[in-house]
Design a protein around this nucleic acid. Structure first.
Lengths: 145, 145
DNA sequence: GCAAGATGTAATTAATATGGTTACAGGTAA
DNA sequence: TTACCTGTAACCATATTAATTACATCTTGC
C-alpha cells in the first residue's frame, strides 16, 4: 500500500505554477511536466481550488496560487487532495468477536494509538511549505550548472 | 487509501496470545476472535514468526510469544507484517519531464521530505508496546463490569 | 505404522482503488 | 462565431486486499 501520488503531483503543480510565474500554467502545460494526462491535472486542480490553494476559472487559461508561497504547507496539499481520510490512515478489522475480551476491546484500544501516529505524520508535513520545496528545486538547479 | 488491517490483526493476535496464555492459541481460535479465516491468521502468523515475534511450529497446535511483552513495539509488528515498504509510504509519480526544471528535480526534492514524515509516524509506533495494549484491554474490561 | 489434527502455502475470487484515457458540456475572449 | 480552455463524467486496465478453498507437510497418540 502507499499513499496516492496525487499528493506528490499536487506539490509538483504548485511548485511549477510558482516557477512558471511569468507564463501561463494551463493544464496541458502542467501535464507535460508531470508527464500525465491534462484531465488528471484538472481533477487535482479542482481539489486544490476547493481547498483555496489555487485560482482557476472555467474558460480562462492558466492557474495561479491563491496564497503566499510560504503559507501553503505540505499538510494543506495533503488534505486538499484527499489521499487519506481523517483518522483513517490505518485500517482496523471490523466485527471482531464481542464474546472475546480482546475482540470486544481491540478497536478502542488501538484506535487512539493509530491516531497519535497519524497525527505525528501530519505534523511533520505541516512543518514544510511549498516555498521550501521551490527553494530546494532552484538550489538543485544551480548545482547542476 | 489506508494501511492494511494486517497490522491491526497482528496486534490483535499478539495481545490475544498473551491473554490466552493458559490455553492453546491455534489459528482457528485466533481466527474466531478476529473474525476471519484461519488461513489469513496463519499467513500473518508466518510474518510475525519471520520477524521473531512468535514461536509456531508445523504440526504443533498453538503459538507463543517469542519475546517479552514489553519488548514488542507496534513498530515491530508494523514492520513484520509488511504493510508499508521502506521509504515508500508516499508514492511519487514516475517519469516527470526532465526538460522541465521542476520535473527533473521534484523527486529528489520531495523524497527526503516524505521520508521525514514517514519516520515521524514510525517513531510514534515505536513508543508503544504490546504490553501497553494488553494493559489497556484489561483496564477496559474492568470498567465494563 | 497410521489416523487425527495442526501449520504452511499456493491458487482463486470478489471488491475496491488508482491512474490513464476519451468525450463532451460549458465558459471566455478575440 | 471560432478557437481554446476548464469542469466533469464515464470507462478501462491494473493492482491490492481479504476471504476462501485446497492440499502438502509435520507431530502426536494410539
Amino acid at each position: 500500500m502507499s499513499i496516492s501520488s496525487r499528493f506528490a503531483v499536487g506539490i509538483h503543480i504548485l511548485a511549477l505554477i510558482e516557477i512558471n510565474k511569468g507564463g501561463v500554467s494551463t493544464s496541458e502545460y502542467l501535464a507535460a511536466s508531470v508527464n500525465t494526462n491534462p484531465a488528471v491535472i484538472r481533477k487535482i486542480m479542482g481539489m486544490l481550488k476547493n481547498a483555496g490553494l489555487v485560482n482557476v476559472r472555467p474558460g480562462i487559461a492558466g492557474a495561479e496560487l491563491a496564497k503566499n508561497l510560504s503559507e501553503i504547507t505540505l499538510l494543506d496539499v495533503y488534505k486538499a487532495v484527499n489521499v487519506v481520510q481523517e483518522k483513517e490512515l490505518f485500517s482496523i478489522h471490523e466485527n471482531p468477536n464481542p464474546q472475546c475480551p480482546v475482540g470486544r476491546n481491540i478497536q478502542n484500544a488501538i484506535g487512539p494509538l493509530f491516531e497519535i501516529a497519524q497525527t505525528a505524520l501530519e505534523k511533520a508535513l505541516g512543518h514544510v511549505t511549498i516555498e521550501d520545496v521551490v527553494k530546494d528545486i532552484i538550489e538543485k538547479e544551480k548545482l547542476n550548472h
